[in-house]
């Protein structure tokens, strides 16, 4: 069963079309990694899925509900498809615990006690039980991103979108975030991950999508797309990435 379904998506900024007719779907429990050069439209595509961007052509459905930023259903869709950002975007005026409990308490209207207890469990799960009462500026980048993942999990989403979750991190902090993501994948979380971490994609992804210039150039299991790419543009991109 597909949780997320994109059909013939087109997206323009002004008169410039940056996503050209992209279709794909994500099944329950699947991990899909999106790779591609800078400016290829990876973030834009991801942001269309939870309605942070509008799209002009085609249709995106989440659990069968059409993603439409002008519709009342958009808020419900967003509680089911969580998002983790490159720059974490934690709420700086709240502790780690409050960041995680905020959505459950104020959006999902869960009882405060229960939400806070659950938030503590989630922080424990990402290895940050001891930092529950710290404010984001007091945490390292890797810790902030793990709190952000806990915040996403707090909504008990059906899927999580990750937009280059480790790109803003110092190299020595990347591992701790990828480890959390790996464990989520192992537990069967549905994930769409925009990433430059080819090792992670190879190991965790069920499917890799290669985007270039707003076009979905190639997709398939990681061993095929990453090891035996068919399209010359994919070959070229991977050669450059692996050299770097």
């Amino acid at each position: 069963m597909s949780i997320i379904e994109l059909k013939n998506i087109r997206k323009s900024f002004g008169t410039i079309e940056v996503i050209h007719d992209i279709s794909f779907s994500v099944k329950k429990g699947e991990v899909v990694c999106i790779i591609g050069p800078s400016g290829s439209g990876k973030s834009t595509l991801l942001r269309c899925i939870n309605g942070l961007e509008t799209y002009q052509g085609g249709e995106i459905r989440v659990h069968g509900d059409r993603v439409d930023t002008t519709s009342k259903t958009i808020r419900r869709i967003r509680t089911r498809v969580a998002m983790v950002f490159q720059r974490f975007n934690l709420f700086p005026h709240m502790t780690a615990l409050e960041n995680v409990a905020e959505g459950p308490i104020y959006v999902k209207k869960e009882p405060r006690e229960k939400a806070i207890e659950h938030a503590r469990e989630l922080l424990t799960r990402v290895g940050l039980a001891a930092k529950a009462d710290s404010y984001p500026p007091q945490l390292s980048g890797g810790q902030q991103q793990r709190v952000a993942i806990a915040r996403a999990l707090g909504m008990q989403p059906d899927a999580i979108l990750f937009d280059e979750p480790t790109s803003a991190l110092d190299p020595e902090l990347v591992g701790e975030v990828l480890a959390v993501m790996r464990s989520l994948a192992a537990e069967g979380m549905t994930m769409v991950v925009v990433t430059h971490e080819m090792g992670f994609a190879r190991e965790v992804a069920d499917r890799v999508l290669f985007l270039d210039g707003g076009v979905l150039v190639e997709q398939g299991p990681p061993e095929e797309v990453l090891s035996r790419p068919q399209n010359p543009r994919t070959q070229d991109f991977l050669r450059r990435v692996l050299e770097a």
Binding site: G51, R76, R78, M83, N89, G103, V107
Partner: peptide
């Protein structure tokens, strides 16, 4: 920062 708005929207806030 715009990221604050996006994070809030992404957890379903109006």
């Amino acid at each position: 920062d715009r990221g604050q708005t996006e994070a809030a929207l992404s957890i379903g806030m109006g």
